[in-house]
């Protein structure tokens, strides 16, 4: 790899990564909303499958963009949802649903780490500095 190729790659990669990070909070919010939309008494299989597929994508893309924590957490959650989907007949009780929502919300927290440029980290205004 020549220096020129390397530099070109770094510049283009930085731009793509920046675009990815800009859209990431929206994707994570969508995932959380999908979790919240699941019914309390029975599985919404289509929704759960869609969550599973989005987590799978997030795990792969996040890792390739250097978001190792997000990728690892998405991967763990992907496995958890896969296990839920593999059960033949299980009701999604309130506590299970709540845990899933919390787990999905926790993905957003990984974005506050130093690996994400501050310009694309969603600002949390709920706890303003004193």
């Amino acid at each position: 790899m020549s220096d020129k190729q390397y530099d070109e790659m770094r510049i283009q990669l930085a731009q793509i990564r920046h675009d990815y990070l800009k859209h990431l909070p929206e994707e994570l919010a969508t995932l959380q909303a999908m979790g919240e939309s699941l019914g309390d008494s029975e599985y919404d299989l289509d929704c759960l499958k869609a969550i599973y597929q989005r987590l799978h994508k997030l795990s792969g893309s996040g890792g390739s963009f250097g978001l190792k924590t997000l990728s690892a957490e998405a991967s763990k959650l992907e496995q958890k949802v896969k296990d839920l989907l593999s059960q033949s007949s299980v009701q999604l009780d309130a506590s299970l649903k709540q845990q899933l929502i919390l787990d999905l919300a926790a993905l957003m927290n990984t974005l506050t780490q130093a690996e994400v440029p501050t310009s694309v980290v969603p600002v949390d205004n709920r706890h303003p500095p004193r």
Binding site: Q5, M9, Q12, L13, I16, K57, G60, S61, S64
Partner: peptide, 16 residues
């Protein structure tokens, strides 16, 4: 199928 991965892989394979 994942667009972000398509983009990054194409770039890596073509440029590097």
């Amino acid at each position: 199928d994942e667009v972000d991965i398509q983009t990054i892989a194409k770039l890596a394979l073509e440029v590097l």
